[in-house]
Computed example of a mutant assay.
Amino acid sequence: MQVAIVTGASSGIGQGAAIRIAARGIGVILTYGRNEQGAVDTVAAIERAGGTAVALHLDLGDSSGFDGFRDSVADALRSTWDRDAFDHLVNNAGIAQTSLIADTTEEDFDLLMRVLLKGPYFLTQRLLPLMADGGSVVNVSSNAASATSGLEPGYATYAAMKGGLTVLTRYMAKEFSARGIRVNAVSPGATRTRLADDAFTRFPEVVPAIAAKTAFGRVGEPDDVGSLIAALVGDDGRWITAQDIEVSGGYQL
């Protein structure tokens, strides 16, 4: 059985991706930060459908813990799947916060950088020795980094880090190709997740405005993005690498 690691799978896009990946017969190691119950729920959903999953804690903003996390992954691989390697990595975990450039503190900037760019960079680096040849990496970026999606004041730092992740995706694809590892990015548009302190729940009035700017007339749901991630991880994506695919339902089309 193949095994995938999905970071930030206690809710939202990561949860949707983990469930979709497991439905393809792939074992899942999923991570959580503060939402342990959400991770338990994701594991339970996968197991109810006949899949296999393990939840591990990971603080993506603290790279000093990555070696220990790698060791935990190795232990889970051996004890649950009798394997020494995993096949796919989905760098999904993230945070979102907004502030105008004039108001952004260095602390805010550094936090977003650690979680959204430095975290995926060095987590992937640490996990590479455990990754099987011929596997895949999917980085979850954002259409906020796209020049064609329209710019919203307050997202400069977030978008800059996600843009860096998109560029990193291409370099990963180049460097990892010698091992047959595919690397792609997906860039969701506005998606109903718990990001920004569950902003969609706290500010439901923004939903109609976003839907009005979207070709399909609604905001995205986690499964809309999770299904594409699963396709890229699966054999469907075997001839796709170095791509950034927007998943926004035609935002600003």
Rank of each mutant, 00 (worst) to 15 (best):
K213E: 03
G38H: 01
V28P: 04
T52M: 12
D59G: 07
L60I: 15
A49C: 00
R83V: 06
L168M: 13
D75M: 12
L165D: 01
G135H: 03
L89W: 08
I26V: 15
A199M: 15
V6A: 06
S99M: 11
A145D: 10
D84T: 15
D133H: 00
T193R: 07
M1Y: 00
R192I: 05
T157L: 01
Q252W: 14
G94R: 13
L89R: 10
S187K: 11
R192D: 14
N92V: 05
F86T: 02
L60Q: 14
A147T: 14
P129F: 09
A156T: 06
R194Y: 02
P129Q: 07
T201N: 10
N143V: 08
T31P: 09
P204Q: 03
K174G: 00
S177Q: 08
N143A: 02
G12F: 02
V206I: 15
A49T: 05
E205C: 00
A147L: 15
N184R: 04
E107H: 01
A22L: 09
A159T: 06
A196N: 15
M161I: 10
G50V: 13
R202T: 09
V6S: 01
G220S: 05
S136D: 12
P188Q: 07
G61Q: 12
G12A: 05
F109T: 08
A39M: 09
S177H: 07
D236K: 08
R179Q: 07
V28K: 06
I210E: 00
G249F: 06
L151D: 11
F176R: 03
L116M: 12
S227I: 08
G8C: 14
D84G: 13
V3N: 00
A102Q: 10
F122K: 10
T98F: 14
A147V: 15
D59W: 08
V225H: 03
G51M: 01
I19P: 02
G38R: 01
A209H: 14
N91L: 02
V28N: 07
G189A: 12
V206E: 05
T105K: 01
G237H: 04
A242H: 11
I29C: 04
Q2N: 13
S177Y: 06
G164A: 08
A96Y: 15
K174I: 13
T191D: 04
E246A: 12
L253F: 13
G150M: 02
G237C: 03
R179K: 07
I95W: 06
V43A: 11
A93H: 01
D67G: 08
L56T: 14
V233Y: 11
V183E: 09
G217T: 03
Q2E: 12
V28E: 01
L130R: 12
A159W: 01
L123P: 02
K118G: 01
L56G: 14
V225Y: 03
V3D: 04
D84Y: 03
I101S: 14
A231Y: 08
H88K: 03
G119R: 06
E205V: 08
I46P: 03
G134I: 02
R20P: 04
T191C: 06
A39Q: 11
P208F: 04
A74V: 05
G68T: 10
R24F: 00
L58Y: 07
